[in-house]
Write a protein that binds this DNA or RNA. Sequence first.
DNA 1: CAGACATATGAGAACGTTACCATACGCTTT
DNA 2: AAAGCGTATGGTAACGTTCTCATATGTCTG
Lengths: 339, 339
Amino acid sequence: MSVTMEGIAKAAGVSVATVGRVLHQNGYVAPETRRRVEQAIQTLGYIPNQSARALKSRRSGLIGNLVLQNLNGLYYRITDSVLRAARRRGYQLVTVQITEPGADELPAVENFISLGVEGLVITSDAFVPPACFALLRRAGIPAVAVERGYLEQGVDSLTVEDFTGAYDAVTRMAKKGHQRIALVASAADLPVERQRLEGYRAALRDSGLPEDPALMELVPEYAAEHGKQAAARLFARPNPPTAVFCGADTLAAGVLQFLSEHHLRVPRDVSLAGYDDVLSRLFAPPIDSVSLVLSGAGEQALELLLHRMAAPTAPVEQRSIATRYQDRGTVRTLQETQT
Amino acid sequence: MSVTMEGIAKAAGVSVATVGRVLHQNGYVAPETRRRVEQAIQTLGYIPNQSARALKSRRSGLIGNLVLQNLNGLYYRITDSVLRAARRRGYQLVTVQITEPGADELPAVENFISLGVEGLVITSDAFVPPACFALLRRAGIPAVAVERGYLEQGVDSLTVEDFTGAYDAVTRMAKKGHQRIALVASAADLPVERQRLEGYRAALRDSGLPEDPALMELVPEYAAEHGKQAAARLFARPNPPTAVFCGADTLAAGVLQFLSEHHLRVPRDVSLAGYDDVLSRLFAPPIDSVSLVLSGAGEQALELLLHRMAAPTAPVEQRSIATRYQDRGTVRTLQETQT
DNA sequence: CAGACATATGAGAACGTTACCATACGCTTT
DNA sequence: AAAGCGTATGGTAACGTTCTCATATGTCTG
């Protein structure tokens, strides 16, 4: 069927050992012999068999990418970044997306080990069961967690500075004079969400603003519909907020839909900011959002991973993905706001 | 290092052959022996080595997924669908995304062959060089193209009914009495774009409307900014359109931004519809869009692929992904429109 | 009771590659 | 001239699986 090293060895009139030397550019090969072998490789269209290579050399050239929950488009961007970084280093990325949280993780990790991945990038804000890490440890495969940290498992991680991102956004609103700043965010008990919530609360506190539970809308899901309903509740109050900070762009979309339907304009009547900066650029008007500096996230993840491969016993490292406030002018000073 | 079949054979006091029989549930194994072997597998935590398995059996259990150009979020949804379908059939999906169109395709395909994929799903509206198909043919690896067809290469395909989708959307506008229906679409010379354009033109023709070049904005890219600029040009005319059909949701986003800035409301002043239905649901207001019925796209793609694997010489097959007009009420009858 | 047959297990040859060891030649060094 | 060394090449044993073939029981049939 397919052309093997033996095939081209025969064609070039040499041994497989020599073909191997040409392929790996190591050892001594006479220029003329090299030419003949390369010629044979060309004409026969030889493509090395990765399975055999991996089996023998214990280097698969594969890096696993475990993605859990893909609610917003964010993970795609991270995966994309990791993919490019991996390729730049000569690694192939194998992505597995969890469909059934809580049940699929372990089989997925087994699968990765089975494939012989040399490292694993775990992209998730959801909780990965400790058994997965135990498995990886036993197999001697290093992992790096992106988005959520697993320091307690001794895993290097790349977390998002969500606290700072939220803190910064809300502080800006407070600095512009807003007193009633609402929060619309996910109620999920995940580090990411908790940090955004805490950032919001800390910003209020540090700005000397009271924390009003009636202004904190924690909704069950990211879907726009929930943002819309939350806005409906917020603006039905006698004292509606003058600024709304959303823990996700999709929620902000819902808020914007409500405002638009009720002829409230952004930022004339209400100031609005979202999070993730994945959609907000496309809204009418484009709204402020906390963007994650993902360029380089893949690079960082792979750096951590390769570093860990080289030094398995080095101290656990944690780096972070910075956030940057994307200012599109939808947070206006209170004086200019029509109440 | 890791536990092999020989390891558990030793632990269970049997030969590797027996372990193999237990693993594959074929051949005769005494119940008691089976128990012992399974016990050993459990306690030692045996995980089969895919490389060795693939090398020997020529069945890697891998399916390749080549993705070119990932402009809108559409491909992610297709990939996701393919991923699930593949897993349901016991296949692992390996995705490679092209970064450098025109240069990366061939190496990527070689990589896939090298990995021993049993089939390849090509998701792309961009052009895949024939050399790739030649390579696949030589390696005896079946492929299926999603989104764009490659019938001339003898490749099964799953194309999107873009002509119908556009035709349907524009016909609806015409039926509601609109006479000046604008088009904002990508100028890229791709089958997808051509079909959307042709659908628009055919709908005008069949509705007895003249084709007005001034109402056809073919922009270089999908970015919202281009939609906005196109809208600016359209509405600067003495006779602006009363309805705008966009070849992509991102373009519709730009149009909406322009309209919003100029206090033109949808659908009160202008009717608007997008394409792909990937973002339009989130707009304020949510706008009509042509949605692709992707549920089942992965299933279909894998069905085609597996069918081809089983019968390599069967006649080339082409199926299609249907479109469905998502009505959110942003196309209003001309009578109700304020001009 | 001999042969046929179902049941149960082991031995071992591949799969295509890598990498170590052996061999062989010609040239310099002492 | 023997030893040492750089150059060039071939032979071959793994890597962990799969799978065929061989072997060894007991059990049933005519």
